[in-house]
Nucleic acid binder design. Structure first.
Lengths: 240, 240
DNA sequence: GGCAGAGCGAGAGCACCGCTCTCGTCACTG
DNA sequence: CAGTGACGAGAGCGGTGCTCTCGCTCTGCC
C-alpha cells in the first residue's frame, strides 16, 4: 500500500524510460505524419526510425489507431494553445477575433497534414474517444471567450432576446458567455456559424477548393473573418 | 482513314465489352466506397467482387488512385446533379437557395463516405487532375445562378459598388452574375463565404464536430443557411 | 482465309503493411 | 536470492498495391 503510493509518487526507472521511449515514438510518428500524412503513416516505419522492430512498438501503443489518437489529441492541444496565445484580452473584440482566426489559419498552413487529421475525413472505423473532446474544444472556447467578454463589457448590441431551447446545447450557452441581454439564440447560432465557417474557409483553402476562385488568399481570409465578426456583433457593422 | 471514322462512330465489340467491364468495376468500387470508405477501398477486393484477379483490373485502371479519381468525378457529378435538380428557377431567391443547400446536405448524409472523399482530407500524394474541376464546380455554379438571377430581376439591394481587382478571380465574377449594380466585391466575397460555409457546416455535422453543441441539426442547418442568404442579400434582412 | 499483333485474364512474385505469438533476456520486487 | 513481469527480437499470417510473364483470343489487314 505504502509502496504503491511511493511508486506512484516517484516514477521508477522503468517508468521513466518507458515514458521517454513513448515520447520518442510519438515524436517520430509526428515527424512522419507531417511528411506523408495520416493515411500513409506506417507503424513499421516509425519503429524503424526509433531503431525498434515493429512488434516492440506494440508494447507502447496497442494499435496504429491508438498512435493516431495520440497525435490527434496532441494536434488539438497544439492548435488550441496557438489560438489561446494569439488572444489578447482587453483589446478590441474585433482585434481579438481576427488575431485568433489568423493564428488558427497560420497553424493549419504550417501543419497541413495534422490539420487534415483533425478536421478532414475521419479515420474510417475509428471513433474518437471522449478524452479528445476537451482538447478539441479549445479553439471554440477561445472564440467564445471573446464573445462573452464583449457582452459583459457592453460592446455588443442588444438582441431581441430570442429563446429557442433545444436548438443548441447548454454547454454552448455557457461557452458563449452564458445568459446575457446581448446574447440570444440568434447570436449563438451565428457564433457557431462563424466557428464552423472559420474551419470551412481554412479547409477549402488547404484542400484546394478555392483554386480558381480566390486570388489573394490572405486578404480574402481577413475580409471573410471580419464579415463573420460583424455578423455576430463583434464589430460595428452596416448592412443586412 | 475512313475505317478509323467508322470504328470511332460505331464502337467495336471489344470496345463495348471493355466499356461494360469498366462500368462493372466502377460500380463495385462505388459500392465498396460506400461501405468501407476511400481509405479502405481495396483494388483487390473490387477485383474479387467482379470475379477478376487483381492484375486484370490494371488493364482498366492504371492504379488505385485512378479508380479513386473516377469515383471522385462521379461523386461531384452526382452531387452537382442533385443540387441542380433542387433548384426551381422563377421562385423566390431564398427558397431556391434553401432548396439547393438542403439538397446538398441530404446528398452528403446519404453518401457520407463519398462526401468525405470529395470534401474531406485530400488523398495523400494525389493531385486532382484538371478534368475534375468542371464537375466540382457544379454546386457553386448552381448557387451562383441564384444570385445572378436575383440581381437581374432586381431582387437584390444596391451595393456600394466596391471594386477590388485581384481578390477573387474573373471566373468567380462571371459565375456570380457578372457585372451588375447589385453585385460588387463585398457581395462576391460573401457569396464565396456562404458557399464554403455550406460545406463547412455539413462537414462539421458529418465529421462529428457539432456533437455536444448542436441539438437539432435540421433546424440549426436551416437557420444558418437562412442567415447566410440574408448576408448576401437573397432575403430581406435586418441586423448588422 | 490466314496471319501478325494487340488486348486480355491468370498467376507468380515483390515489397510493404498491421498485427500476433513465441522466446530468451534482463531488471526490479518481494 | 528467487521469481516475476516487462521488454525487444524474430518469425509468421493474411492482407495490400503493383509488376511481369505467359498463354489465349479476338481483330483488323493483306
Amino acid at each position: 500500500m505504502l509502496a504503491d503510493v511511493i511508486i506512484r509518487a516517484v516514477p521508477s526507472a522503468r517508468e521513466r524510460v518507458r515514458a521517454e521511449l513513448t515520447a520518442e515514438i510519438t515524436d517520430a510518428a509526428r515527424r512522419q505524419l507531417a511528411e506523408v500524412g495520416a493515411a500513409a503513416l506506417s507503424l513499421r516505419a516509425v519503429a524503424r526510425e526509433v531503431g525498434m522492430v515493429s512488434s516492440a512498438v506494440y508494447r507502447y501503443f496497442p494499435s496504429r489507431d491508438d498512435l493516431l489518437t495520440r497525435l490527434l489529441v496532441d494536434g488539438y492541444d497544439d492548435l488550441g494553445a496557438a489560438a489561446e496565445a494569439a488572444d489578447v484580452p482587453g483589446t478590441a473584440p474585433l482585434d481579438r477575433w481576427l488575431s485568433v482566426c489568423r493564428a488558427v489559419r497560420a497553424w493549419a498552413r504550417a501543419h497541413p497534414h495534422e490539420y487534415a487529421l483533425l478536421y478532414g475525413s475521419p479515420v474510417p472505423g475509428y471513433q474518437a474517444p471522449q478524452d479528445t473532446v476537451p482538447a478539441a474544444a479549445r479553439v471554440g472556447v477561445a472564440l467564445g471567450r471573446i464573445l462573452g467578454d464583449a457582452a459583459r463589457s457592453g460592446d455588443l448590441p442588444e438582441t431581441a432576446g430570442e429563446r429557442d431551447p433545444g436548438l443548441v446545447t447548454a454547454d454552448v450557452v455557457d461557452t458563449l458567455g452564458g445568459e446575457h441581454p446581448s446574447l440570444d439564440e440568434t447570436v449563438r447560432v451565428r457564433a457557431l456559424l462563424a466557428w464552423s465557417s472559420l474551419f470551412g474557409t481554412i479547409s477549402f483553402e488547404l484542400f484546394g477548393h478555392f483554386v480558381g476562385s480566390v486570388e489573394d488568399a490572405d486578404r480574402y481570409f481577413d475580409r471573410v473573418m471580419t464579415d463573420l465578426a460583424r455578423l455576430i456583433g463583434l464589430a460595428p457593422g452596416v448592412d443586412r
